[in-house]
Simulated assay, not measured.
Amino acid sequence: MVRPEAIGRRPLTRLATAGLAAHVFFELGAGVGMPAASVLGPVPAAGFWGLSSGTLWHAARTRPASSDAVFAVVNGLGLAAVIAHLRGWPSRRTRLGLPWLRECEGMGPELMAYYNPILYVSGAAALGALLRENRSAPRYLPLLALGLMPVFIVTQHAEHWRLRDLARRRPGWWNRRLNRLG
C-alpha cells in the first residue's frame, strides 16, 4: 500500500522514467528494435525495459529519501543516454540553438518530429530530478553517470549495427525499418 505522503514523491524522476520507457518502446514500434534486442531478442528486451521501468516508477514514488543515491545514478544515466543520442547522431540546430536529430538508429526524418520531443522531455525531467529531487545523494554520482556518455554513443552505434545485421539475416516486424537500410 502506498503511503499518502508518498503520492507526490519524485514526480520528475517518474517522468524521466516514463520518458525513457517511451523512448525505447518508440524505437521498437518504429521497427528499429530497442536497446539489448540484438543480444536478448525483442520480447526479452521489451520485458526487461517494461519491468525495469515499472519498478523504477513505483520505487521513485514509494522509497524514502535514503534511496536518493540510486535515483541520482538512474537520472544521471538517463540524461547521459539522451545527450549521447543528441551528440552521436546527425542533427541540426533549432532556432534556440538546441540539437534536433535528423535521423537516429535507422529512423528517418519522418519520425524525428515525435522522437525528439520524447528525448527532450525525458532529458529535461532527469535534469530537473537531479537538481530538485535527489538532494540527499552525493553530487558526484550523476557526474560519474554523465561520464559514460561517450561509452553510450559507441554502444548505441554498435547495437544499431548488430540490429541491422540481424534484420538482414532474420527480418521481423520489430526490425522491419532496418531492412530498408540494406
Rank of each mutant, 00 (worst) to 15 (best):
A129V: 03
V151Q: 00
L146C: 05
A126F: 15
E110L: 09
A18W: 05
S122R: 12
R180T: 12
W174V: 01
H58E: 06
R61L: 03
A46P: 13
A129D: 04
P42R: 13
N75F: 14
G76L: 08
R132C: 11
A137T: 06
A30R: 05
D68G: 06
D165L: 06
A30N: 15
A72C: 03
I153E: 08
A129W: 07
G31K: 12
R93Q: 15
T155R: 10
A69L: 05
M34L: 15
R3Q: 11
A22Y: 01
P138I: 03
H23R: 09
A113T: 07
L181H: 07
A36R: 04
W89E: 09
L111H: 15
G50L: 11
V73K: 08
G33V: 09
A69E: 04
V121Q: 09
G31M: 11
G19T: 10
G172Y: 04
H160V: 11
L28M: 15
A158T: 00
E27T: 07
V24T: 14
A72E: 02
P90Q: 04
P142H: 14
A16T: 11
H157C: 00
P150C: 05
M149W: 05
G147M: 11
F48W: 09
G108N: 06
S38R: 07
I7H: 05
M112N: 04
H23E: 03
V151Y: 04
M112L: 09
L79S: 09
P142N: 11
A81V: 05
G47R: 06
L143T: 13
A167K: 13
I153K: 00
V2F: 01
V43H: 13
R180L: 12
L144T: 11
L111F: 11
T13S: 11
L163I: 05
L77M: 07
A36K: 01
L101P: 14
L181A: 07
L96K: 06
W89P: 11
A46L: 14
D165E: 14
W174Y: 14
A45T: 13
I153L: 06
L111K: 13
L77D: 09
A46V: 13
A6M: 01
A80R: 05
A167L: 10
L40P: 09
N134C: 14
L101C: 10
G47Y: 01
T94H: 06
A125W: 00
L146M: 12
H58D: 03
A22Q: 10
G88H: 06
G31R: 12
G54E: 02
R170I: 00
S136Q: 14
V74G: 08
L146I: 08
P44V: 00
S91A: 12
P90N: 02
S91H: 15
G19V: 02
E5G: 08
A113C: 03
R63Y: 08
F26D: 00
G33K: 10
V32M: 05
R61E: 08
A22W: 00
D68C: 12
I118D: 06
R95D: 08
G50D: 09
R61K: 15
I118P: 13
A22R: 12
S122M: 15
A113N: 05
A81R: 01
R9V: 00
